[in-house]
């Protein structure tokens, strides 16, 4: 399995090649992200009807739920980068993880803050220690741990590897967060998607007129992440490779 895969990974992992191709990709992601978030916000805040029980208060869902999905997705991204970096010894994978971790931490913080602001008027409290909220808070600390660990060693490679291992091990929290509302009795409501997407029985508890802006916002957040992670990874590999000719040329240094 290593032959074809390794060739593909190694070509993309070449820092000068990545630095060149990531620029148009990043711009494309940024444009799609801007358009999608604009449409999603308009759809969510103006076009979608008020909820039968929460009125207009439900509209914070358009920030809360896509942020929560991003917080899970980016942690899986960290774990996959960590695996690639550890197994194939690809420095770009560690640079990508290092670029992504603060973005994931920010989405997790947005999830926790918007959730708290939403919980107060609807549930009657800012915070409860139920399985869903607690496992999401643990995810926030895992992000902080990955960020801190990668910067805690004199040798940056040691930091990269330690952070990668924490990301791989910590990824076990992702399915726990997802299934917490099914496995334990929580105050947090169940998932808005039910069933199995692979056997055609996937259905949702959200009316279509309210659902589409949510999905558009999610697309916008994904592309926002794509643009930001490429942009940050570009700076990261420049910093890490400043002693090479291509990097000095890229920043215009003599």
């Amino acid at each position: 399995m290593s032959g074809r895969w390794s060739r593909w990974i190694h070509r993309w992992a070449s820092p000068p090649y990545f630095y060149r191709v990531s620029r148009p990709w990043g711009r494309a992601f940024a444009v799609v992200s801007f358009v999608a978030i604009a449409i999603g916000l308009y759809g969510g805040l103006w076009l979608a009807p008020p909820d039968f029980q929460q009125g207009n208060g439900f509209r914070i869902i358009y920030m809360h739920v896509p942020s929560a999905w991003m917080s899970l997705f980016i942690f899986v991204f960290l774990a996959v980068c960590g695996l690639i970096g550890l197994i194939w010894r690809i420095k770009l994978a560690h640079a990508m993880a290092s670029a992504a971790a603060p973005i994931g931490a920010a989405f997790t913080a947005i999830t926790l803050v918007t959730g708290s602001l939403w919980a107060k008027p609807m549930w009657g409290t800012f915070w409860v220690w139920d399985a869903r909220l607690t496992s999401e808070l643990i995810l926030f600390f895992l992000y902080l741990g990955v960020i801190a660990l990668s910067r805690s060693f004199e040798n940056p490679q040691t930091g990269d590897r330690a952070a990668a291992i924490l990301a791989i091990v910590g990824a076990v929290d992702v399915p726990i967060i997802h299934y917490s509302v099914d496995w334990w009795q929580t105050l947090h409501q169940g998932s808005i998607f039910r069933g199995n997407p692979f056997d055609g029985h996937l259905h949702t508890t959200v009316a279509p007129s309210m659902l589409w802006p949510l999905l558009v916002m999610w697309l916008g957040f994904m592309c926002y992440f794509g643009a930001l992670v490429l942009w940050r990874a570009r700076s990261e590999i420049l910093l890490r490779q400043l002693d090479t000719d291509w990097a000095r040329e890229a920043v215009g240094a003599p």
Partner: peptide, 21 residues
């Protein structure tokens, strides 16, 4: 007393089995 609402979101006047948690 805290409220535990269901996962259903929809405009008024629609019956959904996800109204209650």
């Amino acid at each position: 007393i805290l409220a535990k609402h269901g996962p259903g979101y929809h405009p008024p006047g629609i019956h959904s089995r996800y109204n209650a948690p």
